[in-house]
């Protein structure tokens, strides 16, 4: 199924492109390329990628939503679906993880859901080649695509009121790391000691869309 893009305005501030169909990873790379181009337009406050979508915040002192929408459509149409193989890896970051035990209180449940042993879940998770699709939910929280299909598990029926900082977790087809203690519904399989977000950092978030990520079991 080939990718089809739908363009729309949302309120007075935002212009959105939503892509359905197509290879999720390739669509995401194409959207990130469009986001990069849009940031140079000069009338965009922010370009915010989501999961197979992109939202541009219009600087209304400079432009209108309609003008940005037309340009966004042209940018998508002229962006190239290069295919996964042709894109040179951006950066690869390694995230050391302690799987299971107190660090990964949901590992046993994930293993039971997947019909695997805890060891197999940890090994599959650490073997994955992940790609940062976008950041959201909380500062520095990266949604990683590329999770092995065997590890796709639904969120917890009852979210935890406090997920510890550094928790490595699975939510549906994504995996990610909680930068800071917060409520959360993803299944926690491990923990890292890395700092994912430092407000005094340049940039503050450790991970950026397009980065490749590998988890290394400790």
């Amino acid at each position: 199924m080939s990718a089809s893009a739908a363009f729309a305005l949302l309120g007075e501030r935002a212009v959105v492109v939503n892509v359905s169909g197509g290879d999720e990873r390739r669509v995401q790379r194409r959207l990130l390329e469009v986001a990069q181009r849009a940031r140079a337009w000069g009338d965009i406050e922010e370009a915010v990628p989501g999961w197979n979508n992109l939202t541009l915040f219009v600087d209304r002192a400079q432009s209108t939503g309609d003008a940005v929408l037309a340009r966004l459509r042209a940018a998508w149409d002229t962006s190239v679906d290069r295919g996964v193989a042709h894109v040179a890896p951006a950066r690869t970051l390694e995230i050391p993880v302690e799987y299971g035990g107190e660090s990964g209180p949901d590992l046993a449940e994930v293993a039971a859901t997947c019909g695997l042993s805890e060891r197999e879940v940890a090994a599959l998770h650490a073997a994955g080649e992940y790609e940062v699709y976008f950041l959201g939910f909380q500062p520095g929280f990266a949604y990683l695509g590329g999770l092995d299909r065997r590890l796709h598990v639904p969120r917890r029926a009852r979210p935890r009121s406090a997920v510890p900082a550094g928790s490595v977790a699975i939510g549906g087809s994504h995996t990610g790391v909680y930068p800071r203690s917060s409520p959360g519904g993803w299944q926690i399989v491990g923990r890292t000691a890395l700092t994912l977000f430092d407000p005094s950092g340049r940039p503050p978030a450790l991970l950026a869309p397009g980065d490749r990520v590998r988890f290394v079991a400790r």
């Binding site: 915040f57 976008f134 950041l135 500062p139 520095g140 930068p179 978030a205």
Partner: peptide, 10 residues
């Protein structure tokens, strides 16, 4: 705060 949404910042 404008300009940091793409890093997850409200």
């Amino acid at each position: 705060r404008i300009g940091y949404r793409a890093q997850g910042v409200a």
